[in-house]
Every structure is written in C-alpha cells, then in structure tokens.
C-alpha cells in the first residue's frame, strides 16, 4: 500500500498549552482513516497541520510526498477540506458557491452531480445565511469534493445532521471512497467511526494511544472487560479513561 498521508512525531503547542504531543500515523491509499478523540484532545490541530493551516512546531508531515506548508499550491489542488462550522458569506447562494469554488481547481467535479448526491438541488438559489445547519453542512461537504480531490479531510462530518441525513452522508462517503478517494475523518461519534473507518487512531491529551481497525479495538476491549461483545465506544472509553479519571 502506498501512504497518502504520513505524520511523524508531530508536536504543536499554543503558548504554554501542549495541543499535540507526539502524534504519528499513516493513511494508505483508498482508506477511510478515522481520528477519534474527546473534545480538546488535539484532533483538529492535527488535521489543521495536515491541511497546511497551521505550522507544526516539530515533526514531519507529508501528503502525497508534499509538505503542506511549503507545497501549498500543489497540495490544495489534491486535498479537499471540510472545516467545522460555517465558512461562506451569508448572501452567497448555494449554486454560486459551488460555481466559485469549482473555478479554483484544475480538474473540478460536476456541480450538478454533487448537488444531486447531497440533496442540494432544491436549494440552489438559497442564500448561505438562510440554510439550516444540516444544509450548510451538506454544502460544506460538496465544497470539499468540488475539486475532485484525491484525499479529503472531513472534520465533524455529520454534526448537526438528522439521523436520515447522517445515514445518507455515510453512504455518500462510501461512494466517494469507492471512486478511489482517500478519506481522513475526524469525529467523536463512535458509531460513525465503526460504520465507516477501515482504521482509526485514538488520540488522548495530544498523544496517539492506539491505531488499529475498529474490529480489533472492540475485540481487545471485550477481552479486557471480560464480556462477549464490546462496542467501539467501550474501547474508546477504556483507552482514554485513565487520563480522564486523573482530572
């Protein structure tokens, strides 16, 4: 397998606060790789370094062999990003946003296909400020994919979506992966990770405490807890429990 993303010994601090304290992992081509962690564990900082939004204090990051900060121009052509929260002018319409972002890329996707896939057809002329949280979320996923990226970083993919929209989004992500796109998924929803991810890295207090398949993690948790079946949530709580208890 070829590595698409390689993160080695990443460190990042803000003033006195250590946000990321030695994180390493690799994401192989065609994988859906999850980064799991509680709020404030360092997930978002880690992916922001991968996206080139932040400069690492120490460590190396390579995406397709590119340095996210130094090779920004080339990286942004191949890396699609969905950030947490809203990021468009309020009066920009859905269709205009897609047409605008489409023009940024060398080989963009077809906006009509994306709008159909994400259920944005009926709100083409709606302004961003008038969209519901779920609609904004779906638009931001569409914008992450409009450049036809080879790898997509999705941060809190289904936050704010209702159960039906969540399931539809999961199916879409599986379709995107089936078309050969590698996906780095940041989440604190364990059911989402269990359903979508081939492998996950569990981050706790800025450190990687486990990297494995969800199945292997749940199997180990079941053995440790002495029960027949454990969920990924059980595994997550067991892996991150010790440091949480200390606080």
């Amino acid at each position: 397998m070829t590595a698409v993303i390689e993160v080695q010994e990443l460190h990042k601090r803000y003033g006195d606060k250590v946000a990321v304290d030695d994180v390493s992992f690799r994401v192989d081509e065609g994988e859906i790789f999850g980064i799991l962690g509680s709020n404030g564990a360092g997930k978002t900082t880690t992916v922001e370094c991968v996206e080139g939004l932040r400069r690492a204090d120490r460590g190396t990051i390579r995406v397709f062999g590119l340095d996210p900060v130094r090779d920004r121009a080339e990286l942004t052509q191949r890396l699609g990003v969905q950030l947490q929260g809203a990021h468009l002018p309020e009066k920009l319409r859905v269709g205009e946003a897609l047409d605008l972002y489409r023009s940024f890329y060398r080989r963009p996707a077809d906006p009509a296909d994306l709008m159909a896939a994400l259920g944005l057809d009926g709100i083409r002329d709606t302004r961003f400020g008038k969209l519901s949280g779920g609609q904004q979320q779906r638009l931001s996923i569409a914008l992450a994919l409009i450049g036809n990226p080879r790898v997509a970083v999705l941060d809190e993919l289904t936050t704010g979506l209702d159960p039906r929209a969540r399931r539809e989004t999961w199916r879409l992500i599986e379709d995107v992966r089936a078309s050969g796109v590698t996906i780095l998924l940041v989440t604190h929803f364990m059911d989402e990770a269990e359903r979508l991810c081939d492998r996950v890295a569990v981050i706790d207090a800025g450190r990687v405490v486990a990297v494995d398949t969800p199945a292997a993690l749940t199997k180990r948790a079941a053995a440790d807890l002495g029960v027949e079946r454990a969920t990924l949530e059980d595994a997550f709580v067991a892996l991150t429990g010790e440091t949480t208890d200390v606080h």
């Binding site: 996206e51 080139g52 939004l53 121009a73 942004t76 052509q77 890396l79 990003v81 950030l83 929260g85 809203a86 990021h87 468009l88 002018p89 309020e90 972002y101 940024f104 890329y105 914008l143 450049g147």
Partner: peptide
C-alpha cells in the same frame, strides 16, 4: 472583518486560491 470572523478567509486558505 466579517470574512475573517465567519471563517471565509480561513476556508479559502485550504483552496488553491
């Protein structure tokens, strides 16, 4: 200021533009 506040500029940093 609103483009900065709403993250419009931040979002654009992740694109080729």
């Amino acid at each position: 200021a609103s483009y900065r506040e709403q993250g419009v500029l931040r979002r654009l940093r992740t694109t080729p533009v």
